[in-house]
Design a protein around this nucleic acid. Structure first.
Lengths: 221, 221, 221, 221
DNA sequence: CATGAATGAGTGTTCATTCAT
DNA sequence: CATGAATGAACACTCATTCAT
């Protein structure tokens, strides 16, 4: 069982167990993202793994719990990435644009995660609700936004009356839609929202939009 | 069987056929929106109809074609609503805000449609691609946007360099995300994006965002 | 309904009915021969006809009766062909060889008929048994064989103690097997029994076999 | 569950699996022979078995593969019987007559096999073609025939210019037809080719025919 | 800790046939 | 004489899951 390129050791099996679980999660992520919750096949996931279907039940309990575990890990990866955000040395405008761009890039780089979130929404977020790890977990990005917003509003640069959650929703909307709805949008309007040659265009557009919204001249209001 | 507001006639069954098909589409729309494509059950759709499962196959051919028919009708409803847009008597700023609000309202009022579109994206928009009715169908709203944009850009009011499709994507993103992702967003951040008491807040926020983007002072650029 | 290249007449519709029935029988013959009784599809037969499925039921009553009608017509065609046998001016040996060759050719030329007979045997000949037209119908060829045999036996040329029915079975066996079992025989032994370049070989072989059997020197018996 | 004539053991279930598969094949053989490929019902096969329909799919994959497995086993039985042929101590004439009789008896004793072969021919031998076990499998009988023929031709006893495959076809034709077409032949001519009291008559007739063909005086040719 | 064999309940689909006119 | 619309019953097949060791 222990692979040749690593020394045997007392807890080798435990490591194998963790590795097997990780492998199952990898494959399950792809399969759920590919076909949706009901479209995914436990048989197919097992077949693409070095273990057997029985192990999926042994480690995770069932299809539902497996999907929850997939979601938990996917959200964990996002959190880790967000924790590495380092924008607070910038002025508020630059910081918010940078944050938007990082969010934009992250969505583009993780289409499977986007699909999983869409799928979870189709099912009313019941797996998140049932998960101890995911309930009202918030997001590291939110704290960053909060601090940038406070700074910008204090200085009078930001005129908009938004809180961090709303701004996060605004930024996420654009990033999420571009990836999640690219197929229907492309089929209906003939425009590929994730075409590489348009990436900079949309990245800039997002930043412009957020900055314009935050800094708009509201004297007339 | 013949309803009271129409005269009885020899081929009354034809009317029944249309009505039965409409009933199947109604139920199928709900079932697909509720459970996704693979989660939906043809048996369940039939059970909630006055006809039998056999008739679904007789009228539509199969589950896949039924889903396509559901999508076609749902998009048709959107088109009809968009064709009634009457904003061109307004000045460009008011017109674009009005358009955004109508889009906003429409998304809120048709959560099933939003879910169907999410589901179709999970499946790579393959049903739209296969549909003769839906391929590159465009959208009446697009023409409206095009005209407003032209007018606003001509008068110098709109400074942004966007075309109609991109602006449509920007508006749709926010409206779509708010409804489609409300479950995960609510579960994660504890905020209900579609709570009635927040509707005006988000409706205004969308309008502000779009207007700010279009009219931002770009002298510094 | 009446085709343009024939004059309208009082009983034109009756003729059309007969023509429609003949067309249905043509298509049904192909379809039953192609796929077997249970494999044949009433829908498919109707689709390849200028009329509708309903007409099949109108004219024939059902799938079972349609198959019976197909069999009846197919056997009728064979009978007609056999009635044109003209071998009695030949000497017994030449006559029997000629008869064998005609039977051989007929089987080769009517593979669909062979298939129908195989299919009917799979079903225990129940349709023939139920048919008024086909029960113990015999065969014109049988009378011919009977006369040739009598003549050959009388003259001492034919030494074998067979009756016409047995000889008919012997000849038919070879002709029928060659066509009916060509697929399994070919797949198993790599030899195509109906290959054109082997036709003469097998035709001669059949004649030789029958003649040898009938004229064998039985002194030692 | 464990039968009395074998010791109980840990993996007794494996033996059960083999037994269950054999039972399914037994019942499937009967059902396919009774009703043809399309006429056979997987439900019916399952109902007459101690297991469930699900197991048929578990063990065989589907109806088509089950039919192929039935064919493979049936041909296997034939091969085994043919391998026990022991005729080479006889002189060529006696040997060939013995071989014909064994073939005759075998066909009579296995009417289900005959039906399966007829059914497979209706379907163009596609299952044999798809089977790794059955493609160009040949037949042990063929080797026996080959050796008898060589011996008989060398000694001048056999005058006919046939090879083993053709002679096999000739013998099989008669044996196969007698069983396969007994229903239509009986219904049409009123003679039961497989009636017990006629068996010797036909058995002798077959031998006489083959011997006469092989040893006919061809001086006049 | 690990697993190959087995399975109940249901899944989408198709069939020959008949109804109403 | 003719027919488009409708249908009950059954069809082959698949699913997530658990048993026995």
């Amino acid at each position: 069982m222990t692979s040749v390129d690593e020394p045997a050791r007392p807890n080798g099996r435990i490591r194998d167990a963790a590795r097997t679980q990780a492998e199952i999660l990898d494959v399950a992520t792809q399969e759920f993202a590919r076909a949706g919750y009901d479209g995914a096949r436990v048989d197919e996931i097992a077949a693409r793994t070095r273990t057997t279907k029985r192990m999926i039940y042994y480690y995770f309990g069932g299809k539902e719990q497996l999907f929850t575990a997939v979601l938990e890990r996917a959200y964990g990866v996002i959190r880790e990435a967000e924790q590495e955000l380092d924008v607070e040395h910038l002025d508020p405008v630059a910081a918010i644009r940078r944050l938007a761009e990082v969010t934009f890039d992250h969505h583009e780089q993780h289409p499977d995660f986007i699909r999983l979130v869409s799928i979870e929404n189709i099912h009313g977020a019941e797996h998140i609700a049932a998960s101890e790890k995911l309930g009202k977990i918030g997001s590291p990005a939110l704290d960053v936004i909060r601090r940038i917003l406070a700074s910008g509003q204090e200085s009078g640069l930001f005129t908009a009356d938004v809180d961090a959650v709303d701004l996060h929703a605004m930024i996420s909307s654009f990033c999420f839609f571009r990836v999640a709805n690219r197929h229907t949008f492309g089929a209906l309007f003939g425009r590929d929202l994730v075409a590489a040659e348009q990436r900079e265009h949309y990245r800039t557009m997002l930043g412009d939009m957020v900055i314009a919204y935050l800094t708009a001249d509201r004297a007339a209001d």
